[in-house]
């Protein structure tokens, strides 16, 4: 147990010392959110309808920046090899890594997505489902990112995003739908429950798959 707490602390230290890991998704998010009104239209009525989808897609794309961080550096300096050789429970370590990556790459974006009320004219009653669906949906996306990152380690190719984005489709649909429901005055709790169910269902599967994918690189 102490071992895992130590790993957790180490991961926190690494991420907090390396400012680019959490600044670059935030910068990407803010830039693209402010590009939409310029590129599409500055009409509040049009933006209001598009806002839920635009926010969710931007969050999805900004995780593409950070998913390589989960394993790439540990792979380059060889610490993943040591972890594999240590005989510890690998899926728990992967879970810790994903969790810390989520805190540093997704949590700031979720906080910043509140600005969409001003920038994209999202009505105020859409804020609650936006925050809740992002809080529950982004961990699933980080899981897919971990799998894609573990499979495409050490390669700069399109395979990571090409794998991750189609997998994230249900989360995207349910997330934007929750916001649209609440804007139309429909109860959105079923979508949140479904997002939770997807997270719980996929968590063990993706963890095992990512551990298997990590082992591939060290035969």
């Amino acid at each position: 147990m102490i071992y895992f707490v130590k790993i957790l602390k180490k991961e926190f230290l690494i991420y907090s010392r390396k400012s680019s890991s959490f600044i670059s998704p935030v910068v990407f998010f803010l830039i693209s959110i402010s590009l939409y009104p310029i590129g599409i239209s500055n009409d509040p009525d049009i933006l209001k309808n598009l806002a839920p989808g635009l926010i969710w897609i931007t969050v999805l794309l900004s995780t593409l920046i950070s998913f390589q961080n989960i394993f790439a550096e540990d792979y380059e300096d060889g610490s993943i090899e040591l972890l594999l050789a240590s005989g510890q429970n690998l899926s728990l370590i992967v879970l810790i890594k994903i969790f810390v990556n989520w805190i540093f790459s997704c949590l700031p974006i979720i906080v910043l997505s509140m600005f969409s009320i001003f920038l994209l004219y999202l009505p105020i009653e859409g804020l609650k489902p936006l925050i809740i669906s992002l809080l529950i949906g982004t961990p699933t996306i980080c899981l897919f990112g971990a799998l894609a990152g573990a499979l495409s380690l050490g390669k700069n190719s399109i395979t990571g995003p090409a794998l991750m984005l189609p997998l994230s489709l249900p989360v995207l649909i349910l997330g934007t739908q929750a916001i649209n429901y609440s804007l139309n005055g429909i109860n959105f709790s079923s979508n949140i429950l479904l997002l939770t169910a997807i997270l719980i269902f996929l968590l063990p599967i993706i963890l095992f798959a990512s551990v298997g994918a990590l082992k591939l690189h060290f035969n």
Binding site: L151, L169, P170, I173, Q177, A209, L216
Partner: peptide, 25 residues
């Protein structure tokens, strides 16, 4: 081969979820 097998299995787990969620959407 192992990597592709992992992807295929994750895909087949995810495919029904995609189908259902697209239905609702």
């Amino acid at each position: 081969d192992t990597a592709v097998s992992i992807i295929t299995l994750v895909g087949v787990v995810n495919l029904p979820i995609v189908k259902k969620s697209v239905d609702w959407w």
